[in-house]
Each structure stands twice: as C-alpha cells, then as structure tokens.
Design a protein around this nucleic acid. Sequence first.
DNA 1: CCCAATTAGTCAGGGCACTGAGTATTTCTC
DNA 2: GAGAAATACTCAGTGCCCTGACTAATTGGG
Lengths: 157, 157
Amino acid sequence: MAAVDLSTHPGHLARRLQQAHYLLWNTMVSEEITSPQFAVLNALVAEPGLDQRTVGERVGLDRSTIAEVISRLGRRGLLDKVRDPQDGRRFLLRLTDEGVRVHRKLTVRTARMNQVFLAPLSGEEQVVFFDLLQRVSDAAEGLRNPGSSAEPLVSQR
Amino acid sequence: MAAVDLSTHPGHLARRLQQAHYLLWNTMVSEEITSPQFAVLNALVAEPGLDQRTVGERVGLDRSTIAEVISRLGRRGLLDKVRDPQDGRRFLLRLTDEGVRVHRKLTVRTARMNQVFLAPLSGEEQVVFFDLLQRVSDAAEGLRNPGSSAEPLVSQR
DNA sequence: CCCAATTAGTCAGGGCACTGAGTATTTCTC
DNA sequence: GAGAAATACTCAGTGCCCTGACTAATTGGG
C-alpha cells in the first residue's frame, strides 16, 4: 500500500540513465578509461596546466574525487603533476603524449557511442533533451550555495 | 585543440543530473536513507516477501549492489530476511514496522523534493523530460542482452 | 612583520555500481 | 536417482562520489 511509482521520480530515472550510459561506455568506448577520466583528459586538452581544483570544477567533481581520478590517470602515465613554483599548494597538470593520444582515440569512440545512445530520439528531441537536462542540473546546483540572503529570488545563473 | 564540449555529452549530463539529485536528496529528504535504499523500501511496500534478486530487478540494481543495500537496511532494522522454506537459495524480504514507518515519512519528503527539483520545468516539459529519460534508458538497456544476431559464437556462460 | 583567514590538497569513512569467481541449492535430463 | 545446468547469493577487487577533519602554503589586515 502507498507504494510510489518510481518512473515519475527524476532521481531514479537519472540513476538509470547513468547506469545505462556506464554500460554502453564500457562496451563501446573503453573498459580501462572511464567517462569521468575522459572528462578530465578533455579538460586538460582544452587548458593544459590547470590545477587540480580547477579541473574538478570544469568537470563537476569535488576535490576528493578529482584527486582519486587524477591519481589513477597519473599511474597510467596519461598526465604529469608538478608543483606550481608560483604557489606551493597547487599541482599543475598536463597530459603526456600518451594522454593526448588516448584522448584522441576516445574522442572518436565517444562520438560513436553518443550517436547510439541518443538514437531513440529525433534530432529535435535530442536538443530538448540536452536543454532540459541542463536546466534541471543547473537549477539544482544553484540551490547548493544559498548566497541566498540578498537576492533569494532574482535570477539564479 | 580538439577538446570536446561536454555539454553535448549525454553521459556527462546524466552524471551531473544525478549528482544534483544526490545533493538535494541529502538536504531535503534524508542524510541516512539514500535514494536507492528508498527505492528498495518502496518495492517491498508494493510487494512484500520478494526475494533479493527480484527486488534488484525492480529497482535496477545488480545482485552485488542490491546485497549491500539490503544488508544496510537490515542493519538499520528496516527489513527482515528469512530463508525461503520452499527454495533454500532465496531470502524473502519484508519490511519491519519501522521500515514501513520510515517509508511513509520519506514518501512525503520525496514528493516535496521532486517538486523543487523539477521546478525549473513547466508541466508539459516535465512530461517530456520523463518520456525522453525513459526512452533513452530503456533503449540502452535493450542493448545489453543482444538477443540480437544469431548468437555470435557459442553462447558464453 | 605577524597572525588569522583562506585555499589546495590529503586522508578516513560511508555508500553506490559493476565484473568475475566461488558456494550452495534446486531443477532438468537422461 | 545421479550428474549437469541453472539459479540465488556471497566475496574480492576497482572505481566513482560525497562529507568532515587534517596539513601545508599563501594572503591580508592590523
């Protein structure tokens, strides 16, 4: 009695979507490099020399998680970590040649995978899909830091 | 060079959506009971006496993960696990009174949270959102078991 | 200049999620 | 009825994800 239908629960659907993606990634992209790891490589291709925290910000990972991911990528020899001479707290990150190579290869496969993943949607639906996903995520993220007080209602973001 | 825009990558968006949901759940629903745990409670309210594997199927968790979640719920005294007298491999699961109580309380809070989470979307958009999410997930799930072709080379397993 | 606050990173701890291997029980087939 | 196959669950291993507490370095105010 009183049980709820999970298919109207966005959290449940989000989890399922992510699982589905994880599985497809594993079969179509790589069993060694994960999607978050690829995101980090990608961030460093765009902006070499970023520090750990900033990379985390770019790809949406907190400091603990980004540290683990980076350590794994380092162990695999895909990136280098050097102390910033200007600021001894920071580590500056840079892809190795191998890291660049891997990123390039995965970029191709990822594009293929995304096509398969989104195949059930028409072109317009895909656009809507991205838009809705992004708006909900952004809004929820906005709820994080109240920042509240002064302008509780005026435009978030 | 050659870096990709992650905002057009459904996997990345799915992950962000889930993280956003996780955070909101923590602040608006519960810090002790997680969303997957709630899903299990919910499944057992709907169908008391299910076995572990079937619960996992209902909520979309594999056998290992469901075992952990159930063990945690058991430790908290929210459900009981009894060996099936008809089939000694199975455990039959049933919520305790406390489990039912917790489920009821969380159901209310979850509904409130979902409203906040979906607030950035209009009513029609929410419907579309659910539909798109579900279609993509279902399709990807379908890719799991090929069933496809003619069975490539002798059935594994 | 010095001390307090801030900032970057680490570490311990809890939970989700998957794979692959192993155990026990049941079922299917000869 | 006995052995093979299937099924339910467990366990070890890897990786993502967060919080909260800690360390080390930098910055800013008096």
